[in-house]
């Protein structure tokens, strides 16, 4: 049963990065869009993401619940040593979630919109940055449960080059996912060509940021490159991801929307898989080398079994309705609520 729980944990994290990532990316895109085009971009975003918006961040909550029920030492170690970036990420989540809805449900369209937009775009940027940073810190090997000083225990684990570069990389990925996702939605040719431009820009960003992560891992002595290149499976997946990026680049303009979306999802999944495979079963790499893994940190016996059953039964309800939700709003022309 432990494996069922582990699979759900990976799945919900993957879903959060893919769907949530596209969602954050839409906000990031706004920062990089000339003011004259923003209105149209916002419209497109709202139509595409609006209906599934609420469901997106549920993946994060599921992952958190799995962590604290199934793997409490991992949850508490992260909460204690990464308290500060977690709190900052929460602020981002609050700002973003509320601003997104407020700007659509404010009964009047006036200067308040500027405030909402400001909060929306910047928190879209902050949240994935800290999410990535936390991820980087977990595997960066700087968490030290024995540390005494404030800096050593609560700052250094995440305030280092490697974690920060993973944060930047995550931001780039979100922008990449969103721009590719929106390509298929844009109806007006002018909007479409702007979005394609952004997509290309973000592909370049992602590649550069990926390079940055490797460089930082060398500087911070995180054993990443050497080990990644030792295993055939990780090499294979990363090569496939690279090929997919190249294909995507060529097909952006004329490719159909399902195909480009699939490719972008594939790229991100492959990167995560390569990392996941490489680190499995460890989740937190500590300074002393006594890592916390899904095996040595899991609850045992009934808690895991009931959690697994709850997840299995839950997904019987959730997956069909989620599928139907996405299906129902495919290619919808009018956001009815907005003028309703």
């Amino acid at each position: 049963m432990l494996y069922v729980v582990i699979i759900f944990l990976c799945l919900s994290l993957l879903m959060y990065v893919l769907l949530g990532g596209a969602d954050f990316g839409a906000g990031i895109l706004e920062i990089f869009t000339p003011a004259s085009m923003r209105e149209q971009l916002r419209d497109t975003t709202y139509k595409t993401i609006g209906p599934i918006w609420e469901a997106n961040h549920m993946w994060l909550i599921i992952a958190i619940v799995i962590l604290f029920v199934g793997f409490p030492p991992i949850y508490t170690t992260l909460s204690v040593h990464l308290h500060i970036p977690l709190a900052l990420m929460l602020i981002g989540i609050i700002g973003r979630g509320t601003a997104f809805v407020f700007r659509h449900y404010d009964a009047y369209q006036d200067d308040m919109q500027k405030v909402y937009n400001f909060i929306f775009t910047y928190s879209s940027f902050i949240t994935p940055f800290f999410l990535g940073l936390i991820f980087g810190a977990a595997i960066g090997g700087q968490i030290d449960p024995e540390a005494m000083g404030f800096y050593e225990a609560y700052i250094h684990p995440w305030f280092n080059l490697f974690s920060i570069s993973v944060g930047v990389f995550t931001v780039a990925i979100c922008g990449f996912l969103a721009s590719v996702f929106l390509v298929g939605e844009a109806k007006k040719p002018k909007v479409k060509s702007v979005i394609i431009g952004k997509a290309k820009l973000f592909i370049v960003f992602t590649v550069i940021a990926g390079g940055l992560v490797f460089a930082a891992s060398i500087i911070d002595e995180v054993p990443l490159v050497g080990l990644l290149l030792k295993e055939w499976i990780t090499i294979g997946t990363l090569v496939l991801a690279t090929i997919a990026v190249v294909v995507l680049w060529m097909k952006l303009k004329e490719g159909n929307k399902m195909m480009v979306r699939f490719l972008s999802g594939f790229v991100v999944t492959a990167i995560l898989l390569a990392f996941g495979y490489h680190y499995f079963p460890d989740i937190i790499i500590t300074k002393s080398g006594e890592n916390l893994s899904v095996f040595n940190s899991s609850a045992i016996g009934k808690p895991i079994d009931t959690l697994a059953w709850a997840l299995l039964v839950g997904s019987l309800f959730i997956l069909p309705s989620l599928g139907y939700l996405i299906y129902s709003f495919q290619g919808s022309k009018e956001p009815n609520q907005a003028n309703g």
């Binding site: 909550i61 599921i62 619940v65 604290f68 959690l307």
Partner: peptide, 12 residues
Amino acid sequence: GMPFSLEGTAFF
């Protein structure tokens, strides 16, 4: 944790 994991489904 059990209520929280069931609650996850309900929220979803």
